[in-house]
Design a binder for these strands. Structure first.
Length: 598
RNA sequence: GCGCCCGUAGCUCAGCUGGAUAGAGCAUCAGGCUUCGAACCUGAGGGUCGGGCGUUCGAAUCGCUCCGGGCGCACCA
């Protein structure tokens, strides 16, 4: 397909010297595979665009394709059989479809980054799964990717937690579990140390409102922690351990992995040199009240970046600065993506501004992918106030709903629970990636766990139907649709064996088959869009388009009918196989599994 | 107050480096299971692309402005 595009480009270049040739994709298969809009060329030539298209259509020749002028566009449309052959070769060949060979570019993706001693809420899902998808797609496209989890394991909040802990719940206290009135109503799973810590945190903030002097208590505890007080240190370590254990369980469930989990505490001893560099460059100025700031007006940011508090203590901006400098040295990266909510756009503008002034090397390498916050119908979620929706509750509810549907539609299904898990997760994760809105999303159960229409399960359903057909086809067809080794977070490409094509591809002449090929052809471009725009939306939407086109093909073109000639049957089976592989690969990049039956 | 973001069908959203008749899903209505999975498919209705002005051969897309909403604005992260 790429060669055809290149040939199209070459002939356009020779017909229109000195013109910039921009080739687009038409909106649908019946218009063709590639389109050249003639507006600019027409203007340069002083002609009518439609006329230019006509002239080009009658002059140029591309083997295996027809050139037609449709108004101001010159459309290249491959002959159905050529289109089928090119696409199936690409889809079933040795190179994973749409992937690129390693080219040494290093991309860092910072995502998830939960705070120690807090529970995963639905708000953490976006960063975690978008970050995962971006890491996966970049790896698929040949980048060297480092997946970074910048754990929130340092800061004043630990003073709060230490103070709360000392106040109400000593480590050894056996009454811990009974100290909280609402613990009896909650799920057994939440009777974990982490959940108790979370409750302590919430309680402290609640009581603090009427007793402001508690804040000093918290500050004092953080001071002790910073000064290396053994008790504070011991408790901090313990908080961190129980939190990480809990996080890992969730990451395992989501199929997400990291290459580094260096949290903010990791940069604790690296901030002094970072601050010194700021001083040496003359960027650090004393601001109001004795705090130290970096002014950024000259780079178009009116609000200066606060780097040191009046008491000399560091702030999260200092830690992010130290982290960026550390990463520059450690990874020598080409791009660093921060998948963090849109409430922090200013923070990252400031951070990037400071880095750019400190070292021009950083310019253009630092990128923030902001996303809208999830809020509840009654307002903003707040961990401090305790009005949050926990991620695991959402996942569990999704799985429960899917299980009910399985019982209704396919009660004989083996491994119901495992399949329900894949579908429930698929629904939630796919929904999350589908819209990359920067505006806030209002959480409702029915929205996030929708199972019909533009959803993960719709794509998974198309995949499962294909596997079902391939199984019925007998022989090794179904086997060919399975990965050659188990999938794991260490992989980006689903491992498939290269397959040879049937000799004849009649049977793919039908418009529905051609439309499916057209949508499959859009997948590589969608992956590049994901990489360029740093959002997973384009991939999710392309998978939907493929699944939709498959469903139409499936209803229009019988595959295993006895009246079909063996050639027609095999050609259609090959298309099914190619589609199944593409769908599984695409879902996998998003962190979604594709069950063979559902 | 200042800065950034958003406003597209009844609802939720795509489309935005300007370009073909503005697309999906949900909801509504009308059809489709004696052969491969109806978690599906086919069709219909539904739009001053928030309003206005401008740039352009051409604007949902770019600029200005107004209206409506969100977020941020130094010692939280």
């Amino acid at each position: 397909m790429e060669q055809v595009k290149a040939r199209f480009r070459t002939s356009l270049e020779s017909a229109l010297p000195d013109q910039e040739i921009l080739i687009e994709r038409p909106r649908s298969a019946d218009m063709g595979d590639f389109a050249f809009p003639c507006f600019r060329a027409a203007k340069a030539l002083g002609k009518n665009p439609a006329q230019v298209a006509q002239e080009l259509a009658s002059t140029l020749r591309i083997e295996g394709a027809e050139l037609a002028a449709t108004g101001p566009y010159l459309n290249l449309k491959l002959h159905p059989e050529v289109r089928a052959r090119l696409m199936l070769e690409a889809l079933l060949g040795a190179t994973p479809y749409g992937s690129a060979p390693a080219h040494g570019e290093t991309v860092l993706v910072e995502y998830s980054s939960p705070n120690i001693a807090k529970l995963f809420t639905i708000g953490h899902l976006r960063s975690t799964m978008i970050g995962h998808a971006l890491a996966q797609v970049n790896r698929y496209l040949g980048c060297q990717v480092q997946r970074l989890n910048h754990l929130g394991d340092w800061g004043t909040q630990f003073g709060t937690l230490l103070a709360a802990y000392k106040r109400w719940a000593e480590l050894e206290n056996p009454r811990l579990e009974n100290d909280f009135s609402w613990s009896d109503e909650i799920h057994e799973r939440r009777r974990t140390p982490l959940f108790r810590l979370f409750q302590l945190y919430v309680r402290f903030h609640q009581e603090e409102e009427s007793q402001p002097e508690m804040r000093d208590e918290a500050r004092a505890w953080f001071k002790r922690l910073e000064n290396g007080d053994p008790e504070a240190r011991r408790l901090w370590t313990w908080f961190r351990e129980v939190s990480l254990a809990e996080f890992q369980r969730i990451y395992d469930r989501l199929g997400v992995g990291f290459d580094a989990m260096d949290g903010e505490a990791f940069y604790e001893d690296k901030m002094a040199t970072a601050v010194q560099r700021l001083r040496d460059s003359g960027l650090l100025e004393e601001g109001e009240n004795g705090a130290f700031i970096v002014r950024l007006e000259d780079v178009g940011i009116q609000t200066p970046s606060l780097m040191l508090k009046a008491d000399g203590a560091t702030i999260y901006a200092t830690r992010d600065l130290a982290a960026a400098l550390y990463r520059q040295e450690t990874y020598a990266f080409d791009r660093c993506l921060y998948v963090v909510g849109s409430d922090q756009v200013l923070h990252f503008q400031q951070l990037f501004g400071v880095l750019g002034k400190l070292d021009p090397w950083f310019k253009g390498r630092m990128l923030h992918t902001p996303f809208g916050m999830i809020k509840l119908p009654e307002g903003k979620m707040s961990t401090r106030k305790g009005n949050v929706v926990f991620l695991e509750d959402v996942l569990d509810e999704a799985v429960t709903r899917v299980l009910a549907i399985i019982e209704e539609k396919n009660p004989e299904l083996p491994n119901k629970e495992a399949v329900a898990e894949m579908l429930g997760m698929g629904a939630v994760v796919f929904f999350d990636a589908l819209n990359d809105r920067v505006k806030p999303i209002t959480f409702t159960w029915d929205r996030i766990i929708a199972l019909d229409g533009d959803t993960g399960p719709y794509v998974q359903y198309a995949h499962a139907r294909i596997l079902s057909v391939l199984r019925k086809a007998g022989g090794t067809w179904a086997h060919k649709a399975r990965p050659t080794q188990p999938l794991s977070p260490a992989l980006a490409a689903v491992p498939y064996r290269a397959e040879s094509l049937p000799d004849a591809l009649d049977g793919l002449q039908d418009p529905a088959a051609q439309a499916l090929l057209f949508e499959l052809a859009g997948l590589p471009e969608a992956l590049r869009t994901v990489q360029r725009e740093n959002m997973a939306t384009a991939l999710a939407r392309q998978l939907l388009a493929i699944a939709r086109a498959f469903s139409a093909f499936y209803t229009n073109c019988p595959i295993l009918w006895t009246e079909n000639s063996p050639e027609v049957r095999d050609a259609r089976l090959a298309l099914c196989l190619a589609t199944a592989r593409a769908l599984r690969q695409g879902l996998f990049l998003m962190g979604i599994q594709a069950p063979e039956e559902m």
